[in-house]
């Protein structure tokens, strides 16, 4: 498995991280080094082994379906880069 610059660009796009064109070859190279390391996992016989979902076998607790918190608009918005009229503001999403 080898990652080319086109795949690297696609992964960057999926991750929503802008990577300049001239940085892609180095990035692809690093991916290949890391993935080469990960490839060792193919040596392991995992037949019949379930993928781990929880390191400690546990049933997630349930609670009553009731409102436990709220009325904190100012606190929720206090760290926003751009908050207006009680909302998070972002650039136009739909043309």
């Amino acid at each position: 498995m080898s990652i080319d610059t086109k795949t690297a660009a696609h992964v960057a796009k999926l991750a929503r991280i802008r990577v300049e064109e001239d940085a892609l070859p180095v990035l692809a190279q690093e991916f290949n080094t890391i993935l080469g390391f990960i490839e060792q996992l193919n040596e392991v016989d995992v037949e019949g082994i379930e993928p781990m979902t929880s390191v400690t076998p546990m049933r997630l607790k349930r609670r009553d379906d009731v409102v436990t918190d709220g009325d904190q608009q100012a606190a929720v918005l206090s760290n926003a880069p751009d908050a207006r009229e009680g909302f998070f503001a972002v650039p136009k999403v739909v043309e």
Binding site: V46, I49, M52
Partner: peptide, 14 residues
Amino acid sequence: AYYNRARRVRALIK
């Protein structure tokens, strides 16, 4: 190929 395999190996490590 990657994520599920890694989680299976994790089960073996445990």
